[in-house]
Design a binder for these strands. Structure first.
Lengths: 336, 336
DNA sequence: TTGAAAGCGCTAACAA
DNA sequence: TTGTTAGCGCTTTCAA
């Protein structure tokens, strides 16, 4: 049986009130009693029952993170890095992290509701925001703190961190253009995601600057997995007039596209250019190394968690909306 | 302010006991009162305060998972899939999942201790077991339920799920041997992991069957990342007598090795064979597709969680130790 | 400086 | 069938 404050009270002959106060270092306890109580507590191996503490304090000291998993073989290096960012930061501040896995859809919101209503978390980290995001609408309605990774369309009256996807894609397309590419194809993530629309807009705008347009043939849609990148790139490569460059909306799809190219016996970076977005660690060690747009995923995880903790603690936030400027990482997958 | 059982009692004019019982569907409540209470509860949007419920029940209905992260840019597709398995299963059974991120080391055990002593979880999922695993020693000592993914060396008196790494590697090496390879190198994960020793043993034993040994030059050590696979393979390829086949102790390192080979202008599967272990989703869509040993990661996550829940519920376990038989997946990275 | 007592929201033994 | 009461482990007001 675990040691409680009551056990210590009994052992020291003091009241539970005094014990509680001594353990929290309150000043209205004589130094001797405090020393004695602390010693005994240590001897007995006391640790507070967090459940009880939390029930009393009416705070959970817990952050919620609902991981949107797509299918059972959900395998996304992006998220392990992001999770490390959230987890490390939460841990440093003494917060617990409650993680649920849930494919986007009907039941997803139910999970949020459950955690909110069950008073299990103080706030949420929301990822992969959609243009009309029911999670954000809900959390705002019930006034539960959250910080989003990404934006929605329309009213942006909530805290978020995002990277400027329009600017990022523009840099990337301009780079390709400068390399002489005129036939650029784009594999877009599902357009329900705001970041997908931004990235697509970036592609279109940069192309427009050069008086080009994104041909219908050259626009494909994948689901962010490597497999879909492979399939879509195969389609693009089978066109009667295949593109000379393929941009994928994220690195994972770009890897798939690289495989598609190589399967045909073509050389990535020489016969055809491939680029991605995110700059996950694998991008650097792929062959050829992938040209992509960097997102500081780990750091974003940390920032978001920092902000969320400030909010749930009622501390002021210097900036409640941050849009990071992207960085183009030129490697060899688009030639040199 | 959230609705409590007391509010419902006041509104319906019943006692809180009756409300509690009605809400739990106990039989000793008249159908009319029950119907009435349930209706009112719904109207008021009642949801039980889980903290209070748990404090009273002396159970947390929460499972703990401490993710061993290596460095900030921790990016491992293996874990996102595994996490999906745990998370989905826990969710289905109504359990919460408490995730901490912590690099292996001194402080790691502290986190376990904290969760145990703070009575925050009913049990743990332990991954990446080491030969002498302090986590397992600790959890056994304090008699906290857990199920491990992997084994330790020595006394195995605890529940685990593991795949037979010796058998897996043997299959793989035999396959390479049958393809005519005599010069096989191996990039091993750190030997503190039990699975690393098993896999190495598998390599050695299969080699011995063919009267071969693993030359010292041909044994390299990586840290499970793609980057380290790349670096180690570069070293192997620079040997005056480079191997004709490189096996990596996991897929991620195998991808790195593939890049190293391709950087030298060699063709994977033709000039040199590369193989991995795990069969993460990327293995199939890499170029060339990776020959590897399959581990049903998602399924293992589910099994482990199933077992753990049975244990914390005090239900009997049909088998408390399962060793899965591996499956060799032959693709093109070793030639055909 | 200390302790008694109330209460966080809930469940359950017991009595009526 | 229903209500009273105690209690899970803790914090905090109030009084001594």
């Amino acid at each position: 049986m675990p040691v409680t404050i009551k056990d210590i009270a009994k052992r020291t002959g003091k009241s539970i009130t005094t014990v509680s106060r001594a353990l929290h270092g309150y000043q209205d306890v004589s130094p001797e009693t405090r020393a004695m109580i602390v010693r005994v507590a240590e001897e007995m191996g006391y640790t507070p029952n967090l459940l009880a503490q939390r029930l009393q304090k009416q705070r959970t000291d817990t952050l919620g993170f609902i991981l949107p998993t797509f299918g059972p073989r959900f395998s996304d290096p992006f998220f392990s890095e992001f999770l490390a960012g959230i987890g490390n930061t939460a841990g440093e501040y003494g917060y617990d992290l409650l993680v649920s896995t849930q494919p986007p859809g009907e039941k997803e919101l139910e999970v949020y509701r459950q955690k909110v209503m069950g008073r299990q978390v103080d706030g949420f980290v929301v990822v992969r925001t959609r243009c009309q995001d029911p999670r954000i609408q809900y959390l705002r309605k019930v006034q539960t703190p959250f910080v989003a990774f990404g934006r929605t369309e329309g009213d942006l009256d909530y805290p978020f961190v995002d990277e400027d996807g329009v600017a990022g894609m523009k840099m990337l397309v301009r780079h390709l253009l400068s390399l002489g590419h005129q036939h650029i194809a784009y594999i877009s993530p599902p357009l329900e995601f705001t970041f997908a629309r931004d990235r697509m807009r970036g592609v279109r705008e940069a192309l427009a600057e050069a008086n080009l347009t994104l041909a219908e043939d050259y626009l494909a849609f994948g689901d962010l997995t490597q497999r879909s990148g492979l399939a879509q790139a195969q389609k693009l490569l089978s066109l009667s007039k295949p593109p000379t460059a393929i941009i994928a909306g994220n690195d994972l799809m770009a890897f798939g596209a690289m495989s598609a190219v190589q399967q045909r016996g073509l050389r990535v970076g020489r016969d055809i250019a491939i680029a991605g977005f995110d700059d996950i660690p694998m991008a650097e060690t792929a062959h050829p190394p992938l040209t992509t747009v960097h997102q500081p995923i780990y750091k974003i995880g940390r920032m978001i968690t920092d902000m969320l903790i400030k909010i749930v603690r009622g501390e002021p936030l210097e900036t409640q909306q941050v849009v990071l400027q992207p960085q183009l990482i030129i490697r060899q997958s688009c030639g040199e």
